[in-house]
Amino acid sequence: QEVPLAESPDKHPLQNRWALWFFRNDKNRMWQANLRLVTKFSTVEDFWALYDHIKPASKLSCGCDYSLFKDGIEPMWEDNQNKRGGRWLITLAKQQRHTKLDCFWLDTLLCLIGEMFDNYSDEVCGAVINIRTKGDKIAIWTREAEHQEAVTHIGRVYKEHLGLSQEVTIGYQAHADTATKSSSLTKTKFVV
């Protein structure tokens, strides 16, 4: 359901307008038909109005996703802004759905809308959370997998914002590799 959001001069503008998407897995329909745009926002206050209005990720059914992408970028590999890119992937253990998932996802969203990746924030396309029986996943998508300096900077800052310890590593996968292999075999391009 679309959430109407009023514009106001008193609100704090964001650098980018963002679009929240919702995916529900209905196997009788094509993948793209299961993807819905929820709403777009471009102020801090409208972000919170939306966030506080929708279900927390941990309460979604298995097979559902939320995606937050910059306006104009669709949350799929095929989009021109994504197709040469990749993702920093956080995989969670099953029991973490009730402890870490919502915190990690909120911190991911705040990193995006707050433009917390310094001069490399333009490389960020969006973020996706997948609710899955096998284990939930959160990822930040960037636009160019070959931009090593930008990608690794984003990974380091992201890891720091999630409060992950130095012993924990996270990996970056190019979408081109994910698209052609089963996810468990996708090669990791960078690690931080």
């Binding site: 704090h12 964001l14 650098q15 801090v44 707050g114 433009e115 917390m116 924030s121």
Partner: peptide, 18 residues
Amino acid sequence: GTRIIYDRKFLMECRNSP
């Protein structure tokens, strides 16, 4: 132009402000 950057603390403070 200048990028609009907000830190986590500021964003969290905006959550419940009137």
